[in-house]
Design a protein around this nucleic acid. Structure first.
Lengths: 257, 257
DNA sequence: CGATGAATCTCGACA
DNA sequence: TGTCGAGGTTCATCG
């Protein structure tokens, strides 16, 4: 094993013994560092569901906020994980390492409500690192549904000429409508926004809003439902036609706009 | 900077220069290793949406399958990422490092269909590691919707006494029904399964199935729709009542069952 | 390849 | 705290 002392923020052990790894991991958890461990391990999870994962090489991350991630060499998603807010502890059987074939280092993460437990049992550890993280910057994102809503409010004619938004997030018996307004003839208009190509679910949603409002408002009121999105699937287009609903093609704004 | 040569599978540089880091990163990408970099960086993404993230300490992972993950010290989800199948390259301005304030190391990940680009621009690198991963084990999970389906097929009386499953995944004009069967009186029964508490969407789905089957089958057939899940939201319960649909509380099996 | 629906979804917002 | 809906959702499956 060898120790690397880097600038204040990084402590790394390469090819440590399990005892050394255990100490380094406990230390990192204690100090609120970002902990990473690479080694051969088996993983068991029990909680909302249950899973077992046999031995293999994996990269394990424990964040100071209580998150645990177990990654293999494939996939974007971790093969096992624990959400933020969990408690981590390191367990190491203190038997004589020389002839104990059962020597094992375990990282255990627990949570309550719901009760969940993740156990990462290391046969061997190739590297342990502890990082002191100073971030502080927040992400700024464009192109979301919120941006599309702002775009419609800025330029209501994108939905149709004469459209007038009145309220956003208007409550109905079926939930909150994205944009509530009226058309050039004074008819009530319900707008459902989707930032990308929409399927049948969105039509069902819009349909429920229109029905709810027709019950809420005077029985003689005409309520139009317009689905605003970049495009629709064929099945959704047929559902719209069946229900007398409409579609208006609008793209969410791109970065520059 | 110092170099660590570990057993075959791990190569790590601590506090490298940007040139050294660039070489190690390119080497790892070339060899199909799991690459991790910790350092101060800014991140820009442009594709399905756009985002910018100012300078800060982050942990960056590049997997041999083309996945890229940028993690901060908080959250389970990466702050930026690229899905599997992307192409990575390392760019390093080869200016004289001495007086060039603009010296920069960039990890660029691109993808097409849709066109997306992620750029991680490092001001400094604290550690670079390359791991040769040998996994090979696959995850086995219980508690899924498939498990719930099996539970119902094993014990149909959990839905209601006398219920008889006939077909799973039966096709209708509105999509495939989870379980199609009949009750003690010989009425057609459509069962929609959800492994957790359900909201209005599932009711809409079940409702579409029942409507479609009433059209498909003889006009005189009675089609019952039963939503099977651990629980329902209040709004969904009202929607069920409105539409003459039913609910039956069943938990998905836990590990031991 | 696109379309569909599940997920230990995660995450933020709001009652 | 629970509920609700969005997401650069991701992911597997199916046509």
């Amino acid at each position: 094993m060898s120790r690397e002392r880097a600038g204040a923020g990084v402590r790394t052990l390469v090819e440590p013994t399990l005892s050394e790894a255990a100490a380094a991991m406990a230390d990192a958890l204690e100090h609120g560092d970002l902990l990473t461990v690479f080694g051969r391990c088996a993983v068991d999870y029990d909680g909302r569901a249950s899973s077992t994962l046999g031995p293999g090489d994996r990269h394990v991350t424990a964040k100071p906020d209580g998150t645990v991630l177990v990654h293999t060499d494939e996939r974007q998603q971790p093969v096992n994980w624990q959400p933020p807010g969990c408690s981590q502890r390191v367990e190491h059987g203190e038997g004589d390492a020389a002839d104990s074939g059962t020597d094992e280092l375990r990282l255990v993460s627990t949570r309550s409500n719901p009760d969940e437990e993740l156990v990462v049992a290391f046969e061997s550890v190739r590297q342990v690192s502890a990082f002191a993280v100073d971030d502080g910057e927040t992400l700024s994102l464009t192109g979301s549904e919120e941006d599309l809503r702002q775009r419609i409010l800025d330029s209501p004619e994108l939905v149709e000429p004469g459209f007038q938004p009145l309220v956003t997030e208007r409550r109905t018996a079926a939930g909150a409508v994205d944009i509530f307004g009226e058309d050039a003839d004074g008819n009530v208009v319900v707008v459902e926004l989707k930032r990308k190509r929409v399927g049948p679910d969105a039509v069902g949603q819009l349909s429920r809003y229109v029905d709810a409002l027709e019950r809420d408002l005077h029985a003689d009121a005409t309520v139009r439902g317009i689905l605003v999105a970049p495009s629709v699937t064929e099945r959704a287009r047929r559902m719209l036609a069946d229900r007398g609903l409409e579609f208006s093609a609008v793209e969410p704004p791109s970065d520059g706009e």
